[in-house]
């Protein structure tokens, strides 16, 4: 088991290196120096050269890459080109806000998805199956940015139940601040609910068709112990998908964060794109992708811990 975990960890290193190359290369797929795009056209060449030197954009590309990588490994992502404050501080604050949303949405979405999927599979072909399958397909097909708008319409515009935007400020009591979470969390949890629900249904149906389930019932086990066995067998693929989905929640909340004006990493990324703030852009994408790789690594190890067949 330890050997498997160690080998998996080693495999993640080249992927992470590749990720840094892609993130760095992404910025350079468009010709032109980031500073040239920011400076007004009437700026003198000396000032432009001075700015390039200050932000390190005057060196050859490969030198820029290694300098950037070396600093990034130490947690130093440089200064924002837009307002010259350290990138790291802005990123940490934004990531924290996104994490709150992602974790809550994952908890809601995963538990509903697993519940709906199990019920669908156990009542295969009957009305609970039809109802929950329709719900799961709806969750998968919803454009969540539209869903966010509709929820704002229903709960903030037509009725005054919940706040429409932002996350409140520290001065407000906890209960009020929790209200700001409700709509974004509900919106974000719909996709994981649908995706996980569909996979749980398909996996459990497949397991129900296997001989060992019949054997367990024939042996005299009652309903719940049989379901426990089914759960253990269904866990690895579901776990893998939950890892992916959590990564999507962290990295893909940009649209929902924009609608709700939630000060998270998605909002930061959106601003960075429109301000062409390269250091922030690179740092946000790199950190989110690294999280995603590490998350998948953890999921792989967890899968192997549950199912010995995966440890090879």
């Amino acid at each position: 088991m330890l050997v498997f975990a160690f080998r998996r960890l080693l495999q993640a290193i080249p992927i992470l290196l590749g990720v840094t190359l892609v993130v760095f290369g992404l910025v350079h797929i468009v010709p032109g120096n980031p500073i040239d795009m920011l400076m007004p056209p009437e700026a003198s060449p000396e000032i432009i050269a001075q700015m390039k030197a200050a932000f390190g954009f005057d060196k050859p590309l490969y030198v820029q890459y290694f300098l950037w990588l070396f600093r990034a490994l130490q947690g130093d992502f440089g200064l924002s080109v837009f307002n010259a404050t350290p990138v790291w501080g802005q990123l940490i604050a934004a990531l924290g806000n996104t994490f709150i949303l992602a974790i809550l949405a994952a908890m809601v979405g995963f538990s509903l998805g697993i519940g709906f999927g199990m019920i669908s599979a156990l009542y295969h072909g009957r009305w609970p199956d039809k109802l929950f399958s329709a719900l799961a397909t709806t969750g998968v097909s919803l454009p969540h940015y539209w869903c966010a708008i509709v929820l704002v319409l229903a709960f903030a515009v037509m009725n005054d139940f919940l706040p429409a935007q932002g996350m409140g400020d520290d001065a407000e009591p906890l209960y009020n601040r929790l209200q700001y979470l409700v709509l974004p969390v509900v919106t974000l949890s719909l996709i994981p609910m649908g995706v996980i629900g569909r996979l749980v249904r398909a996996t459990v149906l497949e397991i129900l068709g296997q001989d060992f389930v019949g054997a367990l019932s024939a042996k005299g086990l009652t309903r719940w112990p049989v379901i426990r066995h089914i759960c253990k067998n269904a866990a690895p693929p579901v776990l893998a998908l939950m890892g992916l989905q959590f990564g999507y929640l962290l990295g893909g909340s940009i649209l929902v964060e924009t609608v709700y004006n939630w000060p998270g990493s998605g909002n930061l990324l959106n601003l960075a794109i429109f301000r062409r703030d390269i250091p922030i852009l690179q740092a946000t994408i790199l950190v989110l992708a690294t999280f995603f790789v590490l998350l998948n690594l953890l999921v792989d190890i967890a899968q192997a811990a549950i199912d010995p067949r995966i440890r090879r």
């Binding site: 590749g18 990295g251 959106n270 994408i285 989110l288 995603f292």
Partner: peptide
């Protein structure tokens, strides 16, 4: 497959937005 693994390391929306944001 290893090259694809690298691209797999990005959540799809994030990658699309990043590429689109850079290309304009």
């Amino acid at each position: 497959m290893r090259v694809m693994d690298v691209f797999y390391a990005f959540p799809s929306i994030l990658l699309a937005i990043a590429i689109c944001g850079m290309l304009g």
